[in-house]
């Protein structure tokens, strides 16, 4: 069964015909070519497929594409503006928070959501926020350092 949905992806509103049994992850990767969103488990257990739906981080492998009808979705491809890295992306790279990079898109989007709603997270809040995003390479140390330094930077600039 097909259905046409209206989806705003990375600021662009589009009308797409999807199969109702397609997940949002499949539509993003296969139909829209947004392969930056990764599939690590396909069962909601790893966070590699994280996207922001109406601003909130969700595992897109568990979301039916039809459920995103009328919603706003941000994928990793929408984070950098005008070809230059977003401060989160920049800091992740500076601090060594990226190794193989497979968890990175999800990790960055989760971080974005955290800092958007809480510019001054504590260490505990940082660890909690990314606790659904698994990274095998980094042991999280440099990811946590990167987010901590972003929080500090934001504070120094006076909020968001």
């Amino acid at each position: 069964m097909e259905k046409t949905i209206n989806l705003t992806v990375n600021g662009e509103t589009r009308s797409i015909a999807v199969d109702v049994n397609q997940t949002l992850l499949e539509v993003l990767r296969e139909d829209l070519g947004l392969t930056g969103t990764k599939k690590g488990c396909n069962q909601g257990e790893c966070g590699a497929c994280t996207v922001l739906m109406d601003g909130k981080p969700v595992s897109s492998c568990l979301v039916l594409a039809v459920k995103a009808d009328g919603k706003t979705v941000m994928t990793i491809e929408g984070v950098a503006k005008d070809g230059s890295l977003h401060p989160i992306q920049e800091t992740f790279n500076q601090k060594g928070a990226i190794q193989c990079g497979f968890c990175t898109p999800g990790m960055i989007l989760t971080t974005k959501n955290l800092l958007d709603k809480n510019p001054n997270p504590s260490l505990g809040e940082i660890k909690e926020a990314i606790s659904g995003n698994i990274c095998r390479c980094t042991g999280y140390v440099q990811i946590i350092e990167a987010i901590t330094s972003l929080a500090k930077e934001k504070n120094a600039r006076g909020g968001v």
Binding site: R29, G33, L34, T35, G36, T37, K38, K39, T75, I76, E77, V79, A80, L85, Q89, E90, F92, N93, Q94, G96, I98, G101, F102, T104, P105, I108
Partner: peptide, 23 residues
């Protein structure tokens, strides 16, 4: 030196192509 990795930006932007991304 602790220089940032050269493949970092592509990975941070979701532009790095892994085998699963090859179509």
């Amino acid at each position: 030196k602790g220089l940032p990795r050269i493949d970092g930006p592509a990975k941070a932007m979701g532009k790095a192509i892994y085998t699963v991304d090859v179509n």
